[in-house]
């Protein structure tokens, strides 16, 4: 039984947390970054490989709650195939959507992430939904590829 409709724990979130997509480390990878939620100590490590300037493979390993795991899983599906800079921009749009509670104008790539917008009502959980995206932003902000 999933939670009530107002709950954070919509079926899609529970399902992604139980069976996260792209939860393996990408080897070989061109980029790697970690993000830590200082509030709770949860961690995400994101690895990806760019081919022809686009994300050909991505993996997010998360030690954390259902929200951070589901958010990372959904993130990996949203950004695959995109240039890294565009993925980071998408993260910015997602962040803004959470902060403003706007789901109406989500770009198509972010529509599957719409259930996560609910975290805006739970201040302490917003970081959980953004954790893996922070790793993407870190990668995009670095001039030289890591790895």
């Amino acid at each position: 039984m999933a939670g009530p409709e107002h709950s954070l724990y919509r079926q899609v979130i529970l399902e992604h947390a139980r069976q996260p997509r792209n939860a393996e480390r990408v080897e070989p990878h061109s980029h790697v970054a970690e993000a830590v939620n200082a509030l709770c100590g949860d961690e995400a490590e994101v690895t990806l490989r760019l081919e022809n300037e686009r994300i050909a493979a991505i993996g997010a390993r998360v030690r954390g709650c259902v929200i951070s795991q589901a958010a990372a899983s959904l993130m990996t599906e949203a950004v695959r195939g995109l240039p890294l800079a565009q993925a980071a921009r998408l993260g910015g749009v997602f962040r803004q959507a959470i902060e403003q509670g706007e789901t109406g104008a989500l770009p198509p790539e972010l529509i599957p992430l719409a259930p996560l917008i609910e975290v805006r009502k739970h201040r302490s959980r917003i970081r959980c939904a953004l954790l893996a995206w922070e790793a993407i932003e870190t990668m995009a902000g670095e001039t030289a590829p890591g790895g």
Binding site: P4, S7, L8, I67
Partner: peptide, 11 residues
Amino acid sequence: HPHDVAEVLDE
């Protein structure tokens, strides 16, 4: 996860 426990308890 502890946060998920606390969140549902809060509900």
